[in-house]
Each structure stands twice: as structure tokens, then as C-alpha cells.
Design a protein around this nucleic acid. Structure first.
Lengths: 352, 352
DNA sequence: ATCCCATCTTTGAACGATCAAACGCACGGT
DNA sequence: ACCGTGCGTTTGATCGTTCAAAGATGGGAT
């Protein structure tokens, strides 16, 4: 069992191995400078004393904290999309491979939150930031760029000049794939349940839907309203009550899709058989028995890895060929019963 | 707009204010030792130079990192219970009030993960830990106690001696309340859908159910199986197919409850009207339209605050009267349509 | 006038690591 | 025998803060 705090220091290891401070330091940070046999002796002493460099001391001297700041937004009550939580996990994992850790903090949205970022920087508590949940007119990318602070965002800057590096999911491509899937299984009247114009994410997704429709010679059919499941239900109800209702509903989010599914139930319609439904995000509830919602899944782990890679690149930690400023990753369509006539294909296992 | 890195140090502030290093330090850490007018002068200099103490330097000297370690478990695929994510947020918030931050790291479960804890301690990267997701035979509380490491757990130690401090939710009390609620609205055949014996959390919850049954003179009726929603569906189906089926189902988790709801639908039964269903955790999906699941909500924010309070107390940061070693908080029953005959009460708004 | 004491402030050392530069030594070329 | 060269190692200074102790100042008691 490891003893956590041996209290060993560079100096104590050095005297145990019969060398100087700096040699021990070199064994850890620049092994090639040390003669092989010396190195071995030092490494043994390190092992024996269970020495681990003191992070504060190292940070003070190198001016690097080896910490990445990440702001956790107050979780909206009833938010059933854990995509950001999975993202944090992915970032933490990827960072650990390079000796970095994630420092969490909270901040109010908008300009008011910038002070928290400034505070952490002034204290030299973090080396850079990972941003998530970037919104239209988000002040953070611009401000951080001005200040010369290293950061990478999960999510494009949806307005103004494209500042800083980012990784994002190609919502348009995802929606295009969804429409093509529905078209392939015979649907021709495919409606889109979306958010009002002006949300970057929502506009991106609807664009992919529209593009697919045009390519497939379908009439785009878009309804929009602010909100979540309740709104989805309302919009879907209106569509289904129409004279010539759609046979498939593409929804801007899983949450809207759950509302749409509810509307189907209200009408006595069976998802997948009478009307197909597709969502976006592949939230956990999508695979519940009896829900079985077809949805677009974001490659969160990969996004996390790429974000960290870019940030460490920016920090000069990993020596890679200068990578791209931006990365756009495709979501993958997970087909479940909500867009598949019963018996048309072997059902994917639905239980976790 | 705040300039993040002014580069100011104690020394530069001191010379700006015409005093010494230590006086500036005192203004920040022990203001009562400084003469009022001197203090004012120094505070002005601090403001003007936007000085913030360097965390690394402070940590090095005081041997306190002001960081709390928290291990993020790899999120089980399809986990629809974001309770831990809300918990992290609560902890982060509460810690910030005392100048502490949360440091995230990952570790494998069981003994193998202890090394990561040891590593962080040896590096003096954290001052203590917040544990979550404690399981039966969890090695962490015992090990941390042996090593004399400050920590507080969210969740009892379910086996062996009760080591260290913890805050937990009184699952038994919650289930008792659920049964009493069902009894009060007329139910007499109330079954419990649970997990196999041996999971601390599950046993606690079933105990509360059983206690309530005995007090209300009902026959306990318990079925158990490993698993989530699929299992819940199977167990509920078996119950509903019986000769004299239950009129209410109390489920060990929301996930089982979703399965149970599905089973009701399979039988053409209406939740709340034909058969009542209650879950545990009040997951976001519970409030989706058409789901409307009655469930027990954990006071996560309060738990987070209490955990931090206890930990800082242990670290000697907050000077409070010695608090209790353990805290057991009651969950609150959120009644929705799944346990309420239609029209029996004003429906709570169902949309976020 | 002297001394003591309390209050406020300053000084020197230390925390544990890395940087920059100097040092010792063996080697080969002239 | 001398010197430059390169490799491996050591030394001194430094990062920015707090601790511990010492110094300065003024007021009241003796």
C-alpha cells in the first residue's frame, strides 16, 4: 500500500542517492542528460522514498500550474442532457495523460462571469481554460483572446469573428444523415421541430435538415418554438392535427423528441410504425424500453481528447505539428425503434 | 474590464504603498494587526495594481493547496441519473465561498484506484477529498482514515466499521414516506420493486418500505432483480400478471420505475389511475410530459454544502463548533400524476 | 528621567522546486 | 605538454509567499 505523504524532497532523495538536487531534478525532467548508472541509482532512491515532486514548488518556479480551468454552469433544473458531464469526464481523462488536472469553478453567465476567469489567472491558479456551452454573443472567447489566455472551446463562436480554437459537432451533417435515413426507409413528408432562429446550435441543425430536403427534392417543413419537451408536444400535436400530417418528425433535441413521442401517444399513433421520430444528443432516456428513440450521438470522448490536445499544444506541452485551429466532428446516427417499422430489422438490445 | 495578469507581487504592492512585504500580507491575512490608515493605503494599492496573491507561492509556504480532490467515475453508459453531477456543482459552489476549488481526477474503482489518491497527496496537490459513490466494501474510507487524510463522503460506509465523516440521504425515511402517501390515497396492495440484497443503498430503501408496511398493517411484497429499466419492466409485468395484482408499485430507483411504467402501458393500464408508481431520485426525465413520475428528490445542494462544511472543518479552515460526524438528510416526495388519480388535485406544472 | 509594555511594522529565513551558469574531467587534436 | 570540446554534474540564485522573531514607536506607570 502506498504511503501517501512520505515527506521526501528533492534534497532528501539527492542525499540518499549521493548526488545533487539538480541531478535528481534532471532524472525526472530531462533523463537524457544524466548518465545511465547515475540515473538508475537516483530512480531507485525515488522509488524507495516514494518521492513525488511538490506541485506548488514546481508551479511557483515554472509558472505553470498544470491545471486547466473549467466552469461548471449551474445545471438547469430538469436538464436531462448529460452531454457536458460526460465531456468533463473525457477532458479529465485526457488531461491526466499529460500530468494535468481539471480545476472546477463556477461563474455567472455573461460578462459578469469574466471576473472569475480573471481571478484565477491573476492567482496563476490555471494555465488555460476549456470552455463549454458557448452561446451566441458569448463574451469569453473574445475576452480570453484579447488577454492572450490559452483556451479551447467545445462549440463554435456563433457570432462575430471566429476567435480562438474550438472543436464542435457538425449538427448540420447529423441532421442531413437523419433525413437521408428517413428518406431511405420511405418517408417523404418529413417535418422539423426546432427552436426559434438565433440560437447557433439550432440554426446549424435546421440548416442540415434543409440542405438534405433540397438535395432529396423534398419540401422543407419547419416549425419552431422556444422550449423543451412541452413545446415539442405542442408543435407535434399541431402537425399531426393537420390535413396531411407528416410521416416523420426530425427534432432539434431529444427533449423536443420526447414531447413529440408524447404527442404521438396522444393521437394513438405508434412511433416507428405510424410516424417516425428522430432526436439529437442520444440522451440516456432515449434507450429506455418503450422509448427507443432514434437519435444522433455526439462523439464526446473524442471531443474531449481533441480539446485537451489543442490546449496542451497551445501551452507548448505537447510537441506536435501545428494542428488545425478548428475541428468539426460528425455525430453518429443511432437507429432505434422510433424510426424503424416493427420487424424491419433485428432490434438492437435496448437494455443497459 | 479586469486585466487578468497584472504581474503584481506582494513586493510591488508594498513599495507602491510605501510599506513592507509583510504588512501587505497582513492586510490580506490578518487585517486586525494593521493600523487602519495603513490598511487603507495598502488596500488602495492592491486595488490599483490588481494584485492577487500567487496561489503556488502561498501553497508552498503554508502547505495548503486550497484544492479539494474529487474523483469522477467513468459515467456508466446510459446512466440517466445526474445526481452526482449536480453534487459536484454544489460542492464547487460551496467550496468557492471559502476560497477553495475542486480538482477533478479519474481513478479505477477498488484498490487499484487508491494510487491516484496517494499520488495527489504526495504531490500535495490537494488538501483533502470528497468521496461520492461509496459502495459496499469501498476501500477508500478505511485507507484514507489510516493515512490520516481529511475526507468527507457522500454516502455511508455500508460495511465494516463506520470510518470517517459522511453525509447521506435517508432512503429508508423516503420510502416510508412514499408508502404512507400511497396508503393515504387508498392503496392497500403496495409492492416493492428492488435490487438483490447486498447493495447498501437498495437495502436501506427496502427497509424503509418494510417498516412502513408493518406500521400500516400491510403485507410487505418485495420482488428483486439486478438491473435497470428492463428489469423493472420484467418484474412489474410479472406482478401485474398475477391473480391479485398490486395497485401501487414502489421502485428502488427512477430507472426501475420507468420500466414499470412501460409494463403498465403494455397492459393498457394508466399510471396514477389504475396503478400508482413511485420512483427514487427525481431524475430529469421524471417530469417529462406523459411520464410525470412521482419520485423522491434528494436535497443535493444541501448535501454539497454540508460535505464541504465538514471537510473545511476537518481542515481547520472554518472555525465552527465541532460538528457531528454524520448527517442524514431526508429526501422529499415530489408527487406527480403517476400516483394521483386524474383530477384529484391541481396538476403541478409539468414543463421546465 | 527611566523602564516597561503594547502596538505596529520590518527583517531574515524558509517552503521545494527549476533555471542559468559554472565546474571537473576525460578525450582527441595539434 | 597544451588547449579546446563536450559530457555529466554541481552551485548559486530565484519564483512569491508566510512564519518567526526582532525592531521601532509612543504612552503610562514608577
Amino acid at each position: 500500500m502506498a504511503t501517501p505523504d512520505s515527506g521526501a524532497t528533492l534534497e532528501s532523495v539527492a542525499s540518499a542517492a549521493g548526488v545533487s538536487r539538480q541531478t535528481v531534478s534532471n532524472v525526472l525532467n530531462a533523463p537524457e542528460r544524466v548518465a545511465p548508472e547515475t540515473r538508475q541509482r537516483v530512480e531507485e532512491a525515488i522509488r524507495e522514498l516514494r518521492y513525488r515532486p511538490n506541485r506548488s514548488a514546481r508551479s511557483l518556479r515554472t509558472r505553470m500550474s498544470n491545471l486547466i480551468g473549467y466552469c461548471v454552469q449551474p445545471a438547469a433544473a430538469g436538464n436531462l442532457n448529460p452531454v457536458l458531464d460526460r465531456f468533463v469526464h473525457a477532458v479529465t481523462d485526457a488531461a491526466a495523460e499529460h500530468g494535468f488536472h481539471v480545476l472546477l469553478f463556477t461563474a455567472p453567465a455573461g460578462d459578469a462571469g469574466l471576473d472569475r476567469y480573471a481571478e484565477l489567472l491573476a492567482q496563476r491558479a490555471v494555465d488555460g481554460f476549456v470552455l463549454a456551452d458557448t452561446v451566441v454573443a458569448d463574451p469569453r472567447p473574445g475576452w480570453l483572446t484579447e488577454q492572450g489566455v490559452p483556451f479551447v472551446a467545445f462549440g463554435r463562436s456563433w457570432s462575430g469573428p471566429d476567435r480562438g480554437r474550438w472543436v464542435d459537432v457538425d449538427g448540420a451533417a447529423g441532421m442531413t444523415e437523419a433525413v437521408e435515413h428517413l428518406h431511405a426507409i420511405g418517408h417523404r413528408r418529413i417535418a422539423f421541430i426546432g427552436w426559434p432562429e438565433g440560437s447557433g446550435v439550432g440554426d446549424d441543425r435546421v440548416a442540415g435538415y434543409t440542405a438534405a430536403c433540397l438535395r432529396l427534392d423534398l419540401e422543407p417543413w419547419i416549425v419552431r418554438a422556444e422550449g423543451g419537451a412541452g413545446t415539442g408536444r405542442t408543435l407535434a400535436t399541431a402537425l399531426l392535427d393537420g390535413a396531411e400530417p407528416p410521416t416523420a418528425l426530425v427534432c432539434v433535441s431529444d427533449e423536443s423528441a420526447y414531447g413529440a413521442l408524447r404527442a404521438l401517444a396522444d393521437h394513438g399513433l405508434r412511433p416507428g410504425e405510424d410516424v417516425a421520430v428522430v432526436g439529437f444528443d442520444d440522451t440516456p432516456a432515449a434507450r429506455l424500453p418503450g422509448v427507443d428513440l432514434t437519435s444522433l450521438s455526439q462523439p464526446i470522448d473524442q471531443i474531449g481528447r481533441e480539446v485537451v490536445q489543442m490546449l496542451l499544444d497551445l501551452l507548448g506541452v505537447v510537441a506536435t505539428p501545428p494542428g488545425p485551429e478548428h475541428r468539426l466532428l460528425r455525430p453518429s446516427l443511432v437507429v432505434r425503434a422510433s424510426s424503424r417499422p416493427a420487424g424491419s430489422a433485428p432490434a438492437a438490445p435496448t437494455e443497459a
